[in-house]
């Protein structure tokens, strides 16, 4: 429930979630115009996770991500102009076009380079947590990764190292295949490639606090992250979240199967005919619409206020698109810079 958040926090959270949604839609548009070098991974359907967790963090905390990092960057407060320019491989991007979509970063926000290798970022995140411990800083390391990372040995080693020394780290496993792989008839969830029944079983037996969180419930994510951060800072060790999202449209790259989000769905509940087969997603599983509906229900914002937020976000993303398109490609000289003199 979003009632755990103040009115201002709710409005800011919705703004960030819409910012992610509009940013990802802009990426898909750019891909259809053949402007995105390489393949990319959108965060649509998972906005409440990144925004919920990030809303509880401090400036000095480290945030680590994977190939699916766009939403995490925006939720952390990254500049959408530089983030989008980076995805297009432009000089105006965060990394001058050397990183692109797979390796999003915002170093000024303690968001170092994302790793495009499944589970590759987990040991690194444990390392920043250790660095914070050694330097006696009251901060945490937060690492986002998908359910697939749990199939890698690196994840096991990272969990063990963090548990062994009770390091200040939040493992946020975003399961975006929860419903696809759930076996409704069997009554139990299991990912098809894991021998464990629940993803939380492995960290739990290692002594890590675990929690399964509904990825539609911004308030639940926010509360869980805030409590985990407090425990971590107090020396009580890491927490592992499995955040579940449902019927997830983000995995259909480069086509967005749910189309461009119309924020008025939040109160009209009308699903356009061409998206009828995804009606459940619009009604129940879209975190942006869910949060907007909750805010309306609780009287936190009116239809007009929500439309106003969306309008401002769209204006901001439109100018990010313009900035990214107008930004030149990097100078050829820069190809040999940033390692050592050649």
């Amino acid at each position: 429930m979003i009632s755990v958040l103040s009115k201002d926090e709710c409005l800011e959270a919705l703004r960030k979630m819409l910012m992610i949604r509009r940013f990802e839609e802009a990426c898909i548009d750019a891909a259809h115009e053949n402007k995105v070098p390489g393949h990319f991974h959108v965060y649509i359907g998972q906005e409440a996770t990144g925004v919920g967790v990030m809303s509880t963090l401090d400036r000095g905390d480290y945030v680590h991500s994977t190939h699916r990092n766009h939403g995490h960057l925006i939720a952390r407060g990254a500049d959408p102009n530089k983030a989008l320019a980076e995805i297009l491989g432009k000089a105006g991007g965060y990394a001058g076009g050397k990183a692109g979509t797979l390796h999003g970063c915002a170093p000024d926000l303690n968001f170092p380079l994302s790793s495009g290798i499944v589970a590759g970022i987990l040991p690194i995140a444990v390392g920043t947590a250790y660095g914070l411990r050694v330097r006696k800083l009251p901060n945490v390391s937060v690492v986002f990764f998908g359910d697939g990372a749990m199939e890698e040995g690196a994840a096991y080693e990272a969990l063990n190292l963090a548990a062994l020394w009770k390091l200040p780290i939040l493992f946020v496993c975003e399961n975006n295949t929860a419903e696809v792989d759930r076996r409704p008839g069997g009554g139990q969830y299991h990912a098809p490639n894991m021998s464990i029944i629940e993803l939380t079983d492995l960290p739990r037996i290692m002594g890590i606090t675990t929690q399964i969180v509904d990825g539609l419930d911004l308030g639940a994510v926010w509360t869980a992250a805030r409590d985990a951060r407090n425990r971590a800072v107090n020396g009580e060790g890491p927490t592992f979240f499995e955040v579940r999202t449902h019927t997830w449209p983000g995995g259909q790259w480069p086509t967005l199967i749910t189309g461009r989000t119309d924020i008025s769905h939040a109160w009209t509940n009308e699903v356009p005919a061409q998206y009828e087969k995804n009606a459940n997603w619009f009604k129940r599983n879209d975190p942006v619409l869910s949060v907007a509906r909750e805010m309306l229900k609780l009287g936190i914002a009116s239809n007009a206020e929500i439309e106003g937020i969306d309008m401002r976000v769209r204006t901001e993303i439109d100018s990010a698109v313009k900035f990214a398109n107008d930004s030149p490609f990097p100078s050829l000289e820069s190809a040999l810079e940033n390692v050592w003199p050649h």
């Binding site: 444990v126 390392g127 920043t128 947590a129 660095g131």
Partner: peptide, 17 residues
């Protein structure tokens, strides 16, 4: 856990050690 602790070294370096 060479994979794990070599990665930790990278993270610790990023965090100022």
């Amino acid at each position: 856990a060479e994979l794990g602790f070599c990665g930790m070294g990278i993270g610790a370096a990023i965090a100022g050690l």
